[in-house]
Nucleic acid binder design. Structure first.
Lengths: 192, 192
DNA sequence: ATAGTCATGGCACGTCGTGTCATCACTATG
DNA sequence: CATAGTGATGACACGACGTGCCATGACTAT
């Protein structure tokens, strides 16, 4: 036993998600969240930079995870090969420990609130920055690194959306492969 | 002469951009902006939904512009052809009337403030939604429409970044073409 | 024991953004 | 000329957000 009830951060996340689902993000105040978690308002802002961040906890490690996975990959892989091979493992690591149900409820809250969508876009932007740096570290030129990073994130985002739309079936790796195949088919269309 | 000094909105935009450059976004308060524009705080929020929006005025018409341009394009064009032909004209219309200097100063402010970057990402997201709908209206299937929309926006964003990095030379249409060519080259790389 | 550490509580405060009503110049209609 | 209507702005109160600062109190190390 600790000096305080342990798991304050997790209690805040749980209380916040529940309240957002019950009565909406805007209608939920920080004091309401902390009251349900048995804490005070000031403590909330010690754990999360702002009210929105409570839905994105744990994602601050994504850039580091991406950097590590890219550094571990065989140096011989080109950008598109790395995307094709690395996206599914990366997704598995990012979503590790979170249930499909949690992801669906979280998405429902985010989709209902433009301010939360904004924050989610920023998280993907940070992920893209990490990918871009990873590609550069592998010797890819600046423009290609930037493009490959954006392609990877876009494929990831669209695949996850489709995967959640179908409640997890087919599985995420298969959906990623389908999405990537569609991307290649589209961009390989002749311009004439 | 009107009953009030005309151009309140424009005065607010100008005062805000100047103050953001002088002392930063966070350090600038809305009363400071309105004082410089000769207005009151309440009036600021009648013109802009929040403090960040003052930097994105006029962009609310982008989705409609995109929809119109896509509807006017020859129906025979496939998604990638439409992107290749339509991106430069779209960019010209979106940036019409804004000087390179204005775009550079605006970007400097946005890049210095994550909250503003978030808002910019949301604007691009809305542009993507409009593109996606436009592709669907042209008979493109859902997945391809989504992918094509994201490809278009990504190409647009990266090209504009590169164009501004080089202070406008080469011109934007040429930079768009280069960026799109690099995108095709990357995605056409064999996976083996 | 005693000092140090660290998550939390409590409080004050500035800023943001909204609801509400008043003002006041101009416009339309008689 | 008179009167009612319109629309942008002013003025004020208020709740919520987010931060700075100091106090508390339980655990830890020596």
């Amino acid at each position: 036993m600790g000096r305080w009830q342990p798991g304050a951060r997790e209690r805040l996340e749980q209380a916040a998600l529940d309240l957002f689902l019950e009565q909406g993000f805007t209608e939920t105040t920080v004091p309401q969240i902390t009251a349900r978690a048995g804490l005070t308002t000031r403590t909330f802002f010690r754990h999360f930079a702002d009210k929105r961040e409570v839905l994105f906890a744990g994602e601050e490690m994504v850039p580091e995870q991406v950097a590590r996975l890219m550094a571990e990959a065989p140096p011989s892989l080109g950008p598109m090969e790395l995307i094709a091979e690395g996206l599914a493992p990366a997704a598995a690591e990012i979503f590790e420990g979170r249930s499909l149900d949690y992801l669906l409820r979280r998405r429902a809250v985010i989709d209902a609130e433009p301010a939360l969508h904004e924050r989610e876009l920023r998280k993907f932007s940070l992920m893209s920055k990490a990918l871009e740096q990873g590609f550069r570290d592998r010797g890819v030129d600046d423009l290609t690194a930037r493009l490959a990073a954006e392609i990877a994130v876009t494929t990831f985002r669209i695949a996850v959306t489709r995967w959640l739309d179908q409640h997890g079936d087919p599985d995420l790796p298969a959906t990623i492969n389908q999405t990537l195949a569609a991307m290649r088919h589209l961009t390989n269309t002749p311009s004439t």
